[in-house]
Amino acid sequence: MEPQFRKMAALCLFIGSLLATLTMLLHPSGGSLAHIAQIKSTLVFSHALAIFCLPFIGFGAWGLSVLLQTPGRIAMLPFFVFCTGLIAAMIAGAVNGLVLPFFVAKYYNAGIDEQVLKAIIGYGRYLNASMDYIFISACAFAIGLWSAMILITARLPQWIAYYGFGCLMVGLVGVLTHFNFISVFGFRVFIFGLVSWLVLVGGLMFWEKE
Rank of each mutant, 00 (worst) to 15 (best):
M1P: 04
M1L: 05
P3V: 12
Q4S: 15
K7A: 01
K7W: 03
A9W: 00
C12G: 04
C12L: 10
F14P: 02
I15G: 02
I15W: 03
G16P: 06
S17E: 03
L19K: 02
L19V: 05
A20H: 06
T21P: 01
T21S: 15
L22Y: 10
L22V: 11
H27E: 08
H27N: 12
P28L: 09
S29T: 13
G31V: 10
S32E: 10
S32L: 05
A34R: 13
A34T: 11
H35K: 15
Q38R: 06
K40Q: 08
T42K: 07
L43I: 01
V44Q: 04
A48T: 08
L49A: 02
C53G: 04
C53P: 00
L54C: 05
L54M: 09
P55W: 12
I57D: 00
I57S: 05
W62S: 08
W62K: 11
G63T: 02
L64F: 01
L67V: 01
L68M: 02
Q69N: 12
Q69G: 06
I74S: 08
F79Y: 11
F79H: 02
F80A: 10
F80D: 06
V81M: 13
C83K: 08
T84Y: 08
G85Q: 04
L86N: 07
G97K: 03
G97W: 01
P101E: 01
P101L: 02
F102S: 09
F102T: 05
F103H: 06
A105C: 03
A105I: 02
Y108D: 14
Y108T: 10
E114C: 09
Q115W: 09
I120E: 01
Y123A: 13
R125S: 14
R125A: 14
L127S: 12
Y133E: 11
Y133R: 15
I134T: 11
F135K: 00
F135R: 02
F135G: 03
I136A: 11
I136G: 04
I136K: 09
S137D: 12
S137V: 14
A138G: 08
A138S: 15
A142Y: 10
I143T: 14
L145G: 03
L145N: 07
W146I: 07
S147K: 04
S147T: 06
M149G: 06
M149I: 09
L151E: 07
I152F: 10
T153S: 11
A154P: 06
P157M: 13
Q158T: 14
A161D: 07
Y162A: 14
G164D: 08
F165R: 10
G166M: 09
C167R: 10
C167F: 15
L168K: 09
L168M: 13
L168I: 15
G171W: 13
L172N: 14
L172I: 15
V175G: 10
L176T: 12
L176D: 08
L176I: 14
T177A: 14
F181R: 06
I182L: 10
V184M: 13
F185N: 11
F185Y: 13
F185T: 14
G186P: 05
R188F: 09
F190C: 06
L194D: 04
S196P: 02
S196D: 03
W197C: 03
L198F: 05
L198S: 03
V199G: 00
V199Y: 01
V201N: 00
G202E: 01
G203V: 02
L204Q: 11
L204G: 04
W207T: 13
W207K: 12
W207H: 13
E208L: 13
K209Q: 08
E210I: 02
E210L: 05
